[in-house]
Amino acid sequence: MNRIVISVIGRDCPGVVYAITSALAKEKCNVEQLSQTILKGQFASIVIISAPEGVTDEQIQRVVSLSLESRSMDLTVSARYFETATFDSGEETEPFVVTVNGSDQAEIIAMFSGIFAEQQVNIENLKALRSNDDCVLVFEVALPMSINRNAFRQMLQAKARNVGLSISIQHENIFEAIHRVPIV
């Protein structure tokens, strides 16, 4: 059994998921995990499948592309073998949410993601929202236990202050506590 990861990106319309998954079903592939999102009418999906022996990543890319094209759907497909070795520093982390907001400016995401990269803080989810000239960035990050919280907070605050932005750095639990009924 092969595991293959497929990404599909392009203009959204009804039937996209059917076009992808029906092509996979014909090849006797099983969807193990799937995530999709839509941003301003653009569809993006990442699918991890298990495929029968002998089925190649190129073959999967071809059949899914053909399935979309036959329905006149304008999306790009790419597939590659799934690599089991994923990023794992081996260090224990805590989930923190870093929110940056203020007037929009170029390189704002690069500025903060640069600090995260330097500190070996992995971004696990990122949303960037813009309304008029204002922007809000919500980084959900895994903060290694070895990083000094106060120093990290001060570094980010200093950076935000220098470019006239507001920033907050909070443990994720506070959002769960406020907005969600606890799962028991």
Binding site: T99, N125, E140, S168, E172, I174, F175, E176, I178, H179
Partner: peptide
């Protein structure tokens, strides 16, 4: 994964 409403409404409660 948090929704943007959860994050933004918490920040609003905190800052304003």
């Amino acid at each position: 994964m948090l929704t943007e409403r959860e994050v933004l409404s918490t920040l609003n409660m905190l800052r304003n």
